[in-house]
Amino acid sequence: MSSTIDADRRALLAALAGLTASWGTIRPAGAEDIEAVTAPAQPRTTVLITGSNRGLGLEFARQYAARDWRIIATCRRPESADQLNELASGNPDMFVEALDVTDHEAVDRLAARYRQVPIDVLVNNAGIGGGMENQLFGRLQYEVFSTVMAVNAVGPIKMAEAFIEHVKASGLKKIMTVSSSQGSIAQVNMPMLYWYRSSKSAVNMLMANLALQLKRRGVTVGLVTPGATATDFIAEEFRKRIPNIRQPDQATADMIRNIDRFTLETTGQFFNYDGSVLPW
């Protein structure tokens, strides 16, 4: 049997499997020429995580994989995401995808590729701090603000927009964004991190709006925070100085517990890692 026929048969079988699983096809998103990743016959709970190459995103992939979920793990440069690749090797249900969340065309292409795959939990984890030195009053670097906003605020809403049909087609139907207690306007006491903080307030507002919009469609939207965690996000020399800094596995386990806890009744809330509700 030639390999072409073999490939055709595989595609047909996969397509049939997709249909028999009655998932149907999620919106083509105007990209019919993009080859779809076909959904394996056995339905699986699926999570898509952005910024999954390191830190909390990597830990999300690890912990959801330990639950036997299907993982779509994205990062900007998969070729250098050694730990993620290692985690994915030998796991046929972990898909590593290149994605810069600020590249909206790439987001749309990825959504088209996975148009046959329902996504139970979309985890908007990718985020940047912008560098403290770029956001000092008197020396504010305004071009950095655009980047911080593009990643932290626009990225999550664009992802939600591109993947909304995938989420609606799933069982759990959750859109979760990693925010920060630094985005709480009510808790500001020391002036700093203008860009980072305002991007988190902005994303909080976007997600609060989205929660209101999607509630009647049965989609739960939530904001979670990890607390101060020992990842690359915090420069090494600073980590040592933070008392009781949290480890990524604990911080992620806490966020996952809060994501599990989210229901349509609590949709739109801003959960601190300990399960308390943060003020806006």
Partner: peptide, 30 residues
């Protein structure tokens, strides 16, 4: 006001005002 958002609308406008409020709260302290 995120607290007072009761209907989904004006994503960008609202989000810009939430960002602005955060900036000004910081400036007030500074």
């Amino acid at each position: 006001s995120i607290e007072r958002a009761t209907r989904p609308s004006l994503y960008f406008y609202r989000s810009s005002k939430a960002a602005l409020n955060m900036v000004m709260r910081n400036l007030a302290e500074l």
